[in-house]
Amino acid sequence: MKVKKTIKQIIRHLVLAALALFWLIPIIWLFVTALGAEKGINTNHFFPEKWSLDNFAQLFFRPDTVANFPAWFKNSFIIGCACCVISSVFVLMVAYAFSCMRFKGRKALMNFSIIIGMFPGVLSMLAIYFVMKLLGLNDSLIGLIVVYSAGSGLGYLICKGFFDTIPVSLREAAKIEGASELTTFVRIVIPLSKPMIVYTVINSFMAPWMDFVMARIMINSKEPANWTVSIGLYNILQRTLIGDYFAVFCAGGLIVAVPLSILFVIMQKFYVEGITGGAVKG
């Protein structure tokens, strides 16, 4: 009996290890290619024949006419941080208004927002481009920040679900003590929803950081210094460039993952709580 259990245990862990390996193969490949001395795609060996850190050096210290990674990274980082702040604030504000306040037209507005959200983003991107051009904001960081964060209020649903679970008696008690809605929002509801805020912050940082289509439509500049990471990395995988830049792409991909990984590690605990906290409600 005991032997059988041990064998089962071993098999279980072997299966898990196999699965994990399967999931990690592309990541490992990304890693080793970035650390290899070869510049193009390596089709014959999984591991490179020679190791070097030259790809990272090229990425950071030798920006050329095609790959200007420091500038891309800077642009993406600025956009990411700005959107992170604006979107999070917007989402929390809308969620509070819809969850904790009762006013005329609330249901109608909520339904309206759901319907608006159904419209395919790729299609409206084109029109957004025209609107931004009209405002003179195309081809600029500010334009991208506006594009990413202005509509973020629509993503309030999960956050609202979380606010719905905060006992109404807490808010009522605050009101009896003479607190205004603003005070209730800032002093009672916000401190109680840390997991949700973490979730919102991660999401609003990740969306622009990982986005590719919008940036590609919005930024027409031929000057690589104006690009974001995603456009830049996509560009160096073009058929004519891939032979010289594939390893650089891998190195860039790894670097891009760094801020996200840090966010994840710090906030992983909250993250799981945050998702379910809002989801339990449905």
Partner: peptide, 24 residues
């Protein structure tokens, strides 16, 4: 308070979502 909360986000949604959708 809901008016204060919703004004800016709604404005954003109108510029980024509503106008483009109507246009398309």
């Amino acid at each position: 308070f809901y008016i204060t909360l919703l004004t800016l986000p709604s404005l954003g949604v109108i510029i980024i979502n509503v106008i483009p959708i109507l246009f398309m």
